[in-house]
Design a binder for these strands. Structure first.
Lengths: 194, 194, 194, 194
DNA sequence: GATGAATGAGGCTTCATTCAT
DNA sequence: AATGAATGAAGCCTCATTCAT
């Protein structure tokens, strides 16, 4: 009888929040600017989230979950360690080209001391890194000193760093094409090798 | 004499600002809390900086300059590429152990889309990376595909990532001792190698 | 049939509003919480009242009218002044035991400078007090200096005060039984006596 | 060196808050209206109180304390029960003539279910009522059935009721002069008498 | 008739900045 | 020179009210 809820609107709120946090930081992303960019009233946002903090934390969680889901799927689908690594890096680059805000957002919040990932998510990612290590060890592509931390840093954090450095146009380049995927993969593989 | 007192105060302001930004984020670092922690009056702070933004940007600049100075000095002092790389990584780890706030501060702001380094600084760092590459190429320790970007990412950003991951205690470890320096150096070297 | 359902709903709205105002104050009684407690939609409420203020004012009016009706009925039924006074006090106590919200509501709004009773109601209550005085004077139970104001204060406001002080448990007691009715009646009678 | 704090301003804030609460209720007394009436900036208010609630509770406490102090002083100064009762009632009337807002404020909040007096204050007032009873009992002016509650209701709450009824001009009168003091005293004394 | 999604004015509070002392 | 009292814009959030369905 009443208007039905507009799924579009909540999606727009999330997208606007993502963009504002990336461009202005958490503090600079005001609720009113998010609402304005999303084209909704300020109050509407509070039907879905009890506050700004919860909104951004939820976005952080969703973005991390997307990443973990992707990695899990890759580990399921791909058989060789090299395929897994290449697919992971490729999927991160592809997302960076298709949805750059999501990658920027992940990058920004992962490096913020106020946003820690929840234990459950951390453990999940830890386990997925463990699986990668096992895959790599079996075929001797990974040195015995590599642990979960380093897998994460090199196969996830390093590509993110690279991509964002390009997006920030730090050193005069901004391409994110096959050439960059190959270079990143090569560096990552070398760094992990025995 | 009056000069000395002032130098002290402004140094205290900078230290307090650094700590507040690291511990509470840019938004949470209020001018009044910075002044209080520094033991100066709010108004005093405004004699040196036109506003909060300029204060933090100046700190960011100074921290980057410290890093660049260090790298420059290492490039002057050390002759082999391996020595340079090892010294750089070691100096970052040492600073992390002695002045963790500075390392955290650098880490946090380097990854913030609202804080970009000035062109002059960027060019200086670019040139220093260029010098490292040349040193490495000459002795064949660096592959031909490695550019300034990757040098920066692997010899500076990667150690920072590693250190802060430990400081955040992401994967249940927090040590930053010789063992970690060696492992970081090893990974970095492998990733750059031809 | 439709009429019956509506009567039910509007009655539930009124009851919910009463309770919310008593328990959370006028400001804390939000329209949506009233609607929720009444089990109706927010919009439904606006079919009967143009706004929150009108709803609460109407409740205030109705509660006062109940009191006036009761007093009028007592004046009709009872012959002696003492009977009238006793019955009035007793009926207030009984309502406090059966429907404490109504008594609390009356108490709260009667003492609020933003809620004044309408002139018509004021005049009606004034006339009823006049009748009580006349009844009391005739048998010499009321002193010549007693006017309508004092009758109202002592036979209505004082019992309300007493009851609510007990309900607030101000001085460690909360009983509202025969003993309290008798004591209140006694005090009231003494205070009015010649 | 900096401006010295302006005691006048905080007094004006308190007075403005008192008036706003009386005239518009707690909810209607907005911080901005209080600040405006006091002639200070909104933020200035927060130098003295952490929030609106604390401001109003403090005013409530101060007003109750004034009353208790006055009663205590009267009990010290005056010897006979009659003198005490008369002085108390007179002092309430005098305050009503000189500072009507304070009396209205006390009246409004004493009857609000959200504002309860603190235990310490309650106990103090309880003890003072106890002292009055003892004074009255000794000379047989108070009936044996009178307890602290009734003393409070009749010697404090009743005069407040009377005064505020006049101030609201409920029954067409608004005088608060000697005649009214005498009538109130007479009624109060009769109601307590053995 | 009924619903509840959607709005936005307005409330509380914070804090960067100014300036009288 | 140095202080910190004072300001008020701007942020977060609530909720009375409207209106599409």
């Amino acid at each position: 009888m009443a208007r039905t809820i507009d799924d579009n609107k909540i999606a727009r709120i999330r997208q606007a929040a993502l963009e504002m946090v990336v461009n202005s930081g958490y503090g600079g992303a005001s609720i009113s600017s998010i609402a304005q960019n999303a084209g909704v009233a300020v109050g509407y946002l509070y039907r879905f989230y009890p506050g700004k903090s919860e909104l951004v934390h939820d976005l952080f969680y969703r973005t991390l979950k997307d990443l973990a889901d992707k990695l899990e799927q890759i580990l399921d689908d791909k058989h060789s360690f090299e395929e897994v690594l290449e697919s992971l890096i490729r999927s991160i680059f592809e997302k960076a080209n298709k949805q750059p805000e999501q990658i920027k957002f992940l990058y920004v919040l992962m490096h913020d001391y106020s946003f820690r990932m929840e234990n459950e998510m951390r453990d999940r990612i830890y386990r997925l890194c463990r699986l990668m290590i096992e895959k790599g060890m079996k075929v001797g592509l990974i040195g015995p000193e590599i642990d979960e931390e380093q897998i994460f840093l090199l196969s996830v954090a390093y590509p993110l760093q690279f991509i964002n450095m390009r997006m920030k146009n730090l050193f005069y380049q901004s391409d994110l094409s096959e050439k960059e995927i190959a270079a990143t993969y090569s560096i990552c593989l070398k760094s992990l090798s025995a």
